[in-house]
Amino acid sequence: MTGFIDLYTEAGTFLHRTDPRVKIVAVATLSLLALIMSNLVNLLVLAAVMVVLILFGRASFKKTMLAFSYVFRVMALIVVLWPLFNPGGTPVLFDLWPIKITEPGILAGIATAVRIFCLAAAWYLLMFTTSQRDLVRGLVKMGLRFDFGLSLAMSLRFLPTFSAIVESIKEAQRARGLELDKGNFRKRAKDYVAVLVPTVITALKMADTLSLALQSRAYGARADRTYVRELKMRAGDYVALFIAVAVFAIPATVKYIFSVPL
């Protein structure tokens, strides 16, 4: 359907098999690692590792490109703007008041862009290799309240449904001669009321049925709910967890205990 894309691609790689909780921890540690590093070379090494991991995860090329197209735009923006607004240090390469561009400024801009890439890559890696249901299951197992997890799961479940409904509503109004995305801002805002009102009403009606359906399936009957699939940590998951923690813990020790800049 249109509008929304589930980034997950089914494939049986070790990244797919790893327990979602471990992957969530790994995303956190990789993100922290990217944040404590400032040296461009180190960041580039981390970025290269991320690329390798993503290749290992066998995400579909189309989805990968789509996901990163936004990241690349942000990176380009940072590379251009960072040196303009953070002109610290020397040598100065270009100085025309109020604009001053320095070499450290440019390098810092590139480093920040690479850091953004690493952060995004870590999160995307999780999305590429973990189905939405495993993700929610992992979060609930890690202590997220079940009803929050269910809400999250339902939002994800109904995203494509709503996307299709909005599409149908837009078509229905266009068939009545409404030309969306034409005219000035006021006209457009007014036009969108014709899409928004039916969307909200349809959503409310669906929510009514949904709430009846939930109750009809004994939602909230007991506090000690069970789960059809229990997550179980296997040997490999413990190894992965150890690596995920070490990946952050070792550089952090090096940086903060031994004061080696990274």
């Binding site: 799961a153 049925t209 359906a213 939930l214 399936r217 007991r222 059809v228």
Partner: peptide
């Protein structure tokens, strides 16, 4: 009547398991 709005889980298995899970039936 509406097929779409009474199924709220992300997979068929979870959908069918939802009731017994709430009733704390063993996995």
């Amino acid at each position: 009547q509406e097929p779409e709005s009474q199924l709220f889980c992300m997979s068929v298995e979870e959908e069918v398991a939802f009731g017994p899970e709430n009733l704390a039936v063993p996995s």
